[in-house]
Design a protein around this nucleic acid. Sequence first.
DNA 1: GGACTTTCTTGATTTCGGTCAAGGTTTTCA
DNA 2: TGAAAACCTTGACCGAAATCAAGAAAGTCC
Lengths: 229, 229
Amino acid sequence: MTPFTPASITDSLHRLPLFSGIPPHELAPLLPGVREFKVRAHEMLFQKGDSLRGIHVLVSGQAKLFMTTAQGTEKLLTMVKPGQAFGEAVVFLDRPCPVSAEATQDSTFLIVAKDVLLTMMDRNPVFARQMLASISMRLHELMSDMETCTLMNSLQRVVSYLSQQVPESEGPACEIRLDTSKQMLASRLNLAPETFSRALHHLAEGGVIEVSGRTIRVLDTQRLKTFQA
Amino acid sequence: MTPFTPASITDSLHRLPLFSGIPPHELAPLLPGVREFKVRAHEMLFQKGDSLRGIHVLVSGQAKLFMTTAQGTEKLLTMVKPGQAFGEAVVFLDRPCPVSAEATQDSTFLIVAKDVLLTMMDRNPVFARQMLASISMRLHELMSDMETCTLMNSLQRVVSYLSQQVPESEGPACEIRLDTSKQMLASRLNLAPETFSRALHHLAEGGVIEVSGRTIRVLDTQRLKTFQA
DNA sequence: GGACTTTCTTGATTTCGGTCAAGGTTTTCA
DNA sequence: TGAAAACCTTGACCGAAATCAAGAAAGTCC
């Protein structure tokens, strides 16, 4: 277990994209507002409607952000990976949180309180820009999700997702390891699990991928992107 | 026609939510980076894929932000009203713009160049926060749209939209004036125009609204929100 | 290692909303 | 003012994806 010391926290912070542009010694003013939490898999971090005291940063483990319907079904928005922050937009608007968050693995995360963030932003323009870039990025991702969800059919959505997961500048083939269950991925793509399953089956039949559990082997990246019917 | 002078532009800027927190005399450093444009209805402001030199602020008129499918159909994202800024996230990320923008009425808008914005943010923490709040707001709106588009059926989407348009703290009844054509609204709600029309008809039959052209009279706000089938 | 649960797949059926088509209404503009 | 265009509504039909149902596969835990 990592010791819970100012030095270790400064170190954790410095490894995170959001703070990596800041020299470690300038991170000191943040420390009074940083708290470290450890949660077990399936524990809730916060719920829709909560107000957040600060931004959350996942240090290790995995979490999911999702919305819930009146009927209790979940719609996955995104998986959070180590190094990523979430809740920025909520904190800066002082509004109830529009989503819920839950750890999907045993996880460690930091909460950086709103007040120290604001002071840091005031003192350090580089950090302010970083913060802005981070939220802008989130906005772009959401736009992109909106695009897939509204303009594409089920097969195209799956193709689009897989294509995004393909690493850059590789040969025609590659292997993708899904980071969640297929039903959660289906939810993320706004599909019924059955539909997602059929889409994968269809792609496999067409000879562009091979599915084996959570591992998907893309045989031809180009053909995948242009796969029709 | 408004004269195109530093004084008039400072004045325009100061009226905008994004800059209203800044004393007018502090706006001076922005001026070299501000340009005013006038466009006629149906002129494009920019297209998906363009890179933007600065944020756009609509001074007067009306514009729309939308996405286009490969087949050329449009999906309306949002209507821009006077005082609103757009393109912030694009500017701060230095990425190609994910959406297209077009004036829907004769309009005047300002482009505030990226470099002067960044300098202003560095000098003026209040402005930096304002900028962050503005983008955060956009993110929240998009989340809310995502929620309606993915978790609700057609009727619920229309009900949700109308409910949002109802002014706060009023009696049970009120009148809503649609700010665009019904087909555009349909697109915004991710519905075929026919489906939108049928939804309104259905609500009118149920006695919760009365439709007359672009004016919709809500007879009972509460019943509207809980209207089923 | 075997029972239990959870996850995934496959087929049959249904349904919501899209598409097509046609008629009516409103707006635009000469 | 009147013709043309754009917009809206309504009905009939169709289809993509959800739901329902049941069985197979994989993961979990004594």
